[in-house]
């Protein structure tokens, strides 16, 4: 089976700084691909390139066989690539459930005209029900009607996930979803991510915490200074000399 996402020669330069350099990797349906690397290695930039937030300097990204590089972010989302942000970005003026419904934006079929005529209520009710299920799924069921500004940091992380799932993605990009979570929340998150992959959604997962990532990922890509320095099974990557050097070395230096 061919890959759902294929990244070839992806490069991004910010002025003189090469944040991502000639990167190749692919992700299949139902696969969890871990992306690790020290701070500033270019992980988030890679996500921003795939999601269309940044324009690439060079390279090719194919999603379901079609090139998506250069498309606007909302078009990429509409094709089924949803993401979470490294730093929570809720829609502060809306309750939790409405935040999740924004994630389902591209799945609404009603035209503005039918909204004005009041003919879109059934679809709205159906979507709202589905969004409520997702809020439940990530464990925020009690807080569906709450103002997002009242959420804790960890609850905000979960909201990011529910919102991304609402878009019915075929590929989901998680940027450090476990950062700042308690051990219990991490365990729950690992559960959720496994559940997502089990629905044959492809998962790209950036994570610093090896204890969280290695048991979860099917394969791992290691970045350093924007370039891929290793990839393979979690067990292989863990003992890879270049990884020990670059990644663990830089951590030891802290």
């Amino acid at each position: 089976m061919s890959a759902l996402l294929e990244v070839r020669g992806l490069t991004k330069r910010f002025g003189g700084l090469t944040a991502v350099h000639d990167l190749d990797f692919e992700v299949r349906e139902g696969e969890i691909l871990g992306v690790i690397g020290p701070n500033g290695a270019g992980k988030s930039t890679t996500f921003n390139l795939i999601a269309g937030t940044y324009a690439a300097t060079a390279g090719d990204v194919r999603f379901a066989g079609e090139p998506i590089l250069g498309l606007a972010p909302h078009r990429i989302a509409a094709r089924g690539v949803m993401r979470t942000f490294q730093h929570n970005r809720p829609f502060a003026g809306m309750p939790v459930i409405d935040n999740v419904l924004v994630g389902a934006h591209t799945r609404f079929g009603a035209t503005l005209w039918s909204v004005v005529l009041g003919r879109s209520r059934a679809e709205e009710a159906r979507r709202r029900e589905r969004a409520a299920e997702l809020v439940q799924f990530v464990g925020l069921g009690e807080l569906a009607r709450a103002d997002v500004t009242t959420l804790s940091f960890g609850q905000g992380r979960l909201l990011e996930i529910a919102r991304a799932l609402a878009g019915e993605p075929r590929l989901i990009l998680f940027d450090e979803p476990a950062a700042g979570l308690t051990a219990a929340e991490c365990a729950r998150l690992a559960e959720i991510i496994r559940g997502i992959a089990a629905r044959s959604i492809a998962v790209l997962l950036i994570e610093h915490d090896m204890h969280f990532l290695l048991p979860l990922a099917h394969r791992v890509v290691v970045l350093n200074f924007g370039a891929k320095i290793a990839d393979g099974l979690p067990a292989e990557v863990r003992t890879h000399p270049a990884v020990m050097d670059a990644y663990l070395g830089s951590h030891a230096a802290h």
Partner: peptide
């Protein structure tokens, strides 16, 4: 409302 609150996140959600 999403555009008002956070345009970049709105775009990522398909808006």
């Amino acid at each position: 409302r999403a555009v008002r609150d956070n345009p970049e996140a709105a775009a990522a959600m398909g808006v």
